[in-house]
Simulated scan of single mutants.
Amino acid sequence: MDTLTDAGDYFEDTFKGLLWIEKRLSGASFEECEFIDCDFSDSQFHGCKFTQCEFVRCNLSLTDMANSQLYGLTFKDCKLVGVDWTKADWPQYYRDFELKFQRCLLNDASFYGLTLNELVMDECRVHDADFREGNFTDSQMTHCTFDRSLFMHTNLERVDFSNSTGCSIDVLANEIKGATFSSFEAVHLLESLGIVLVD
């Protein structure tokens, strides 16, 4: 398909190479849809619903998801710079929204205060992102770079950070019980305790 309409109802549709830049869509519903090589940069999806959809090599940078519901989404090789995920509609009765990001660019994203248990981020670049006050229990954040990202009063219990770098996490200001870190990266956690290591 090559067009989108307000309040449209899309089921098992495939969108390839769709250019939807700086546009606005309201009240549309997408279920089990696939988006391939689409450009939605600077667009607004207001009050939309995305369920069990997959995005492959798409550009969603600066996309506004205000009041939209997101469930069971997979992003592969996508660019999602500057997305404020807090604007979406996250029902409190859910804790795991089954969101997966694989090899994505997530710089300058905001997850502030969100509860996204079992979130998956694999081989992603997540620089200058905001995870403060959030709950990401049992998430997988592996093979990622988190340079200058913010963690404060964040629940990171049992989060797998294996092979991830740049994790500047204060062990006294965050919940990290059961979290997994690579040995080299774990050394940086001690800096928040003022501990000096020598060979």
Rank of each mutant, 00 (worst) to 15 (best):
148 R>E: 14
149 S>A: 10
151 F>W: 08
152 M>L: 13
152 M>D: 15
153 H>L: 01
155 N>M: 04
156 L>N: 07
157 E>T: 01
159 V>S: 04
159 V>Q: 08
160 D>H: 12
160 D>Q: 11
160 D>R: 09
161 F>P: 07
163 N>H: 15
164 S>W: 03
164 S>N: 03
165 T>S: 15
166 G>K: 06
166 G>M: 10
166 G>A: 11
166 G>W: 10
166 G>I: 10
167 C>G: 06
168 S>G: 11
168 S>N: 13
169 I>M: 11
171 V>H: 01
171 V>I: 15
171 V>A: 07
171 V>S: 02
171 V>C: 10
171 V>Y: 02
172 L>V: 04
172 L>I: 01
173 A>C: 00
173 A>T: 03
174 N>M: 00
175 E>D: 09
177 K>Y: 04
179 A>M: 08
180 T>P: 00
180 T>N: 09
180 T>V: 14
181 F>H: 02
181 F>N: 00
182 S>Y: 04
182 S>T: 15
183 S>T: 14
183 S>P: 11
184 F>C: 03
184 F>K: 14
186 A>R: 06
186 A>C: 03
187 V>W: 01
188 H>A: 13
188 H>F: 14
189 L>H: 06
190 L>C: 07
190 L>Q: 13
190 L>K: 14
191 E>T: 08
191 E>F: 02
191 E>H: 12
192 S>K: 09
192 S>T: 13
192 S>A: 09
192 S>Y: 11
